[in-house]
């Protein structure tokens, strides 16, 4: 099983967003950073399960789209991670949490799983 989200996966992720402009930009960046680069090696099936569970609890896909876009447009892993971290901390500070697979995580983490799982399910 392909545990990394490669360039193909990333393109599918972008296609999933339905934003041609973003795809163009992303292609121009040459897909140097992949999602797998940001979070290390993640089990696709596990991520897909978390993503599905998140989407089953939250109907608003806009937040997921925003995270997917952030991931897709990322050129600098450290910077992307820092941006996500800031969102996660803001979520926890405001009590924006969700229970996935029996664990309380931030809404942003939920969106990350949903964004990654879109891609994972299409690869």
């Amino acid at each position: 099983m392909n545990k990394h989200m490669d360039r193909r996966g990333l393109l599918r992720l972008l296609a999933g967003l339905g934003a041609a402009v973003v795809v163009d930009q992303r292609l121009a960046f040459g897909a140097s950073a992949t999602c797998s680069g940001v979070f290390g090696e993640l089990d696709e099936a596990a991520i897909a399960e978390l993503g599905r569970e998140y989407l089953s609890q939250r109907s608003d896909a806009a937040a997921v789209d925003a995270i997917a876009k952030l991931l897709a447009e990322s050129q600098d892993e450290a910077k992307t991670l820092e941006q996500l971290r800031a969102r996660v901390l803001a979520d926890f500070t405001a009590g924006r949490i969700v229970n996935l697979a029996g664990w309380f995580v931030s809404e942003t983490e939920g969106c990350v799983f949903a964004a990654l799982s879109r891609c994972a399910s299409e690869v």
């Binding site: 940001v38 979070f39 290390g40 993640l42 089990d43 596990a46 991520i47 399960e49 978390l50 569970e53 991670l81 996500l84 971290r85 996660v88 996935l100 697979a101 029996g102 664990w103 995580v105 983490e109 990350v112 799983f113």
Partner: peptide
Amino acid sequence: APAAALAVAKKL
């Protein structure tokens, strides 16, 4: 799934 979720938390 929890292991994946916690790996993300740890990375963050």
